[in-house]
Design a protein around this nucleic acid. Structure first.
Lengths: 108, 108
DNA sequence: TCCGTATTTAAGTCCGGAGCTAATTAAGCG
DNA sequence: CGCTTAATTAGCTCCGGACTTAAATACGGA
């Protein structure tokens, strides 16, 4: 399960936002929503598989915290897209500066 | 439609990756996939609503290009999460430095 | 050991989204 | 005008994912 899919759900995004403010138990997280505990548990499982959160056991409680790995993957993808894009624009700019009269050719 | 939901689909992610290499027509984009033209059109509609792509008409062709707005939204969210998180860790670090005997809490 | 609390697993329902084919719109060209 | 090309809209099916309730697991305390 990739980070994008995991974060496509608003509830899961909210969970990540809550965890950005500090670690919490599954029960504490669930208190912020109107859905059942099992539903929360399943969301946490998805986030865990996407490496967006980590779990640690403390007695019966499961304490959840953010995991950087998932966020890194996300940010990496966005940066890669931006990188290719800007690189392409730079080439275009240089070409326009060097040969202002060049006839434009549409990409195939 | 938000950027996360739009990018939860692998086909749509791929489309964005292709457009990072330069603008293309709907038909050119579709040639990279094994799905029907209407399916591609639907995907492009979703990406457009998420402001991840822009369209421009050229005769019968619709030329698609990346739109920074969607990527900005995405990056903004990630940065906000990281911001809150790091800020919290900084506070924790300062507290530990000032009071080494403070009851410890696991680092995320 | 038995009970209460915290959480997950199991099993089932329901709805939205991704795909298809067929029909529609739009533009260039003989 | 018709014909072709390019793309979107309409209408349908189907599967996965987000819920639910009920049952199972795990732990601490009286």
């Amino acid at each position: 399960m990739d980070a994008f899919t995991a974060l496509s759900d608003p509830t899961r995004r909210r969970i990540v936002e809550l965890l950005a403010g500090g670690e919490r138990s599954a029960g504490e997280l669930g208190a912020s929503f109107d859905i059942s505990a099992p539903a929360i548990s399943q969301h946490l499982k998805v986030l865990k598989e996407a490496r967006l959160v980590q779990v640690r056991a403390e007695a019966q409680r499961r304490i959840y915290a953010l995991d950087a790995a998932g966020l890194d993957e996300l940010e990496g993808w966005v940066d890669r897209i931006r990188g290719f894009w800007n690189e392409r624009l730079d080439v275009l700019e240089r070409r326009l500066a060097a040969h202002p009269e060049t006839k434009k050719r549409r990409r195939p």
